[in-house]
Design a protein around this nucleic acid. Structure first.
Length: 595
RNA sequence: GGUCGCAUAGCUCAGCUGGAUAGAGCACCUGCCUUCUAAGCAGGCGGUCCUAGGUUCGAAUCCUAGUGCGAUCACCA
């Protein structure tokens, strides 16, 4: 039972004893720092049950608590707020109870249904860019947060490996590629294929303007450009299983996958299972046929199949084209069902997809419910805002993207510059330095993206580099490294530190503040899991680190007056660093031993 | 036009299920490295919480209407 729960019982008892009334609940908040006390009871809500002046009631309840509860050392009442002072022993005992627990904050795995978290889900015609980076960081982190909250989690993605966009790259490569390969050019596979996607677009635009000068309208020209027609023809051949086209498709997709894997490794994310649209859209079609029988869908005169969602306040939605081919929705239905077939223990899914698809997922979830799947109740669209540049939207075709690999490298370069200026790493080997720069650079990038509410759109200005000071990843990493340094120095003196803690010490104000902050961590994990929000973890960690730094600058740890105090402060510092590590772990950010 | 999301300091963002004088960072200004790493600490400057109503003892937070920005409403994915 935590402090709040304990006090709640006592406050209820107080109201019963003093006023013969029953309170339903008690409202607590942390005491503001300008008042004395540790935790505050808000008296106002009690007025519904107890009539009277809130200040007087607060006074009476406070006196009762002080007389009857050992933990309560004192109290004061300001307006309708009862500020309660808690005895140090409570905080010291709490700290002892978590001291040395490396998994503090992480819930025990529950015997519950698993959750599948989908993220990344790229097209295979171009490299990953900053938009994907936000997606990947969010998805990975939410998956880790769910795990930390006690869920079983599978990480997955759906790879959009079929469609006209891939045919465009394929066609351009055939025409202009001269047999280039990643090996012959030294390019990452995804970059190579992406270049041909851009080349296609250039050729396409050239043909359009050519046609326009010949007197065609813009509209017409767009539809009748020969290179586009050729791409469409290629798609038809692919769907028909044409050997040459399929072989080319497989070859180029393989290049892309290799490039993606490198980027994922670079970012530090992973997946348990991959799904490919080319393998799930047929299952989708099967269930469309099924739903047609049961009346979930209906067929129009031209043969197209629809789902009528007007009763749910939405429109009619197409699920199969009149020529019988699959649309986006078809394959998403198929993919969802396939996943449950593969992993029967999965009871819900999280889709990490940008907010431009809010409507799509609303419809998808509704259709799956209508098809009668009970897991459809536990589907969540982790919707996030776009990452825009000052110049506007990123467009791969026009080359106005911030490439993921480039960005990561630039962040590491910046970390290197700053490190060199500070010059603390003279004795590091080149390899160690390189690893460290990447840890710091990635830390800055990941924290920068994850600390903001997923719903908000991010404006990313490449010219204004991401900060390394203040509320940033490196600031937190730095604090971690500084604690490690203390622990290394303390190591020789006190290996029995953990059991020499006793209750004799008087807590410094900064120490108490830190312990209060430690106490919050498990709750923060649970909240973050419920709300699918890494930002909560990031902001919590920042607050913790602020508190630690204040402690660090105001209190001497290794130079404490007594051994008991020193041991306590070392143990406290160690716990803080453990929580930083755990919190950053679920954000996917590494922490360095030195920096 | 319908629907969804967002709006808080010059800039970037916190603000939990309504609670005390709305908080951080960046930027700008003061101090602090002979002592555990100054990527730090202590402090200053800076607010019409988009607007107007409403609910409440109490609203940045909840409700309604409006304004601005973004997204979406395809036999594209």
């Amino acid at each position: 039972m935590n402090l709040q729960e304990t006090l709640e019982l006592h406050v209820k008892a107080a109201i019963k004893a003093l006023f013969q009334s029953e309170l339903e609940s008690v409202e607590f908040q942390a005491t503001r720092k300008e008042f004395a006390g540790d935790i505050t009871v808000v008296v106002f809500p009690m007025l519904r049950v107890v009539k009277g002046n809130p200040a007087v009631i607060g006074e009476q309840v406070g006196q009762y608590l002080q007389d009857n509860v050992d933990l309560v050392k004192g109290f004061n009442v300001v307006k309708g707020f009862l500020n309660i002072e808690i005895d140090d022993s409570y905080y010291i005992n709490f700290f002892k109870s978590i001291n040395g627990n490396q998994n503090y904050g992480f819930a025990e795995p529950k015997d519950d249904k698993a959750i599948m978290v989908e993220y990344s889900s790229p097209n295979t015609n171009k490299p990953l860019h900053l938009g994907h980076v936000r997606n990947v960081l969010l998805g990975y982190s939410v998956a880790e947060i769910l795990k930390a909250s006690g869920k079983k989690v599978y990480k997955t993605q759906i790879i959009n490996d079929r469609g006209i966009h891939i045919c465009k790259s394929m066609l351009a490569w055939e025409r202009f590629g001269n047999g280039e390969t990643p090996i012959s050019t030294g390019l990452k596979g995804d970059k190579l294929v992406g270049n041909y996607y851009v080349k296609f677009d250039q050729a396409y635009k050239a043909e359009i303007s050519e046609l326009v000068t010949q007197g065609k309208s813009e509209e017409e020209a767009k539809k009748s450009a020969p290179i586009l027609l050729a791409a469409q023809e290629m798609l038809i051949k692919w769907e028909a299983g044409d050997e040459d086209v399929v072989a080319l498709w497989e070859k180029m997709n393989a290049w892309v996958y290799e490039g993606f894997e490198e980027t994922y490794k670079n970012i530090g994310v992973d997946f348990d299972k991959y799904y490919y649209e080319s393998q799930t859209y047929l299952l989708g079609k099967e269930f469309i046929a099924e739903g047609l029988k049961t009346g979930v869908f209906f067929k129009k005169d031209d043969g197209s199949v629809w789902c009528d969602l007007t009763e749910d306040g939405l429109d009619e939605k197409i699920v199969l084209r009149s020529d019988g081919t699959a649309v986006y929705m078809t394959q998403d239905i198929g993919t969802a069902i396939q996943r449950i077939k593969d992993y029967p223990d999965v009871g819900g899914m999280v889709y990490t997809v940008g907010n431009e698809q809010d409507y799509h997922f609303k419809v998808l979830f509704l259709i799956l419910k209508k098809l009668g799947f009970d897991w459809a109740k536990h589907l969540f669209h982790l919707s996030y805002g776009m990452v825009d540049l000052p110049s506007g939207k990123m467009k791969s075709r026009e080359g106005t993207v911030v490439d993921a690999d480039d960005l990561i490298r630039e962040m590491a370069d910046t970390a290197e510059e700053i490190s060199n200026e500070l010059g603390k790493l003279e004795d590091y080997s080149e390899d160690e330095k390189k690893t460290l720069y990447k840890t710091i650079g990635l830390g800055a990038l990941k924290y920068y993206i994850l600390k903001v509410d997923p719903k908000k759109r991010i404006l990313f200005d490449p010219k204004e580099s991401i900060d390394f000071q203040g509320n940033t990843g490196p600031f937190i990493q730095y604090t971690y490294a500084r604690i490690q340094s203390i622990l290394r120095k303390a190591d020789s003196k006190l290996d029995k530190a953990s059991n020499s803690l006793n209750n004799q010490i008087v807590l410094h104000e900064k120490e108490k503040q830190l312990i209060k902050q430690l106490e919050l961590f498990p709750e923060v994990i649970q909240n973050a899991a419920e709300q699918h929000s890494p930002a909560l973890i990031a902001n919590y960690t920042y607050d913790l680190v602020k508190d630690f730094n204040s402690f660090y600058q105001n209190v001497s740890i290794l130079g404490a007056d007594t051994d008991v105090e020193r041991d306590f402060r070392v143990a406290l510092s160690k716990s803080v660093s453990q929580i930083i590590k755990n919190a950053f772990g679920v954000l996917g950010i590494d922490v360095p031993e030195r920096m």
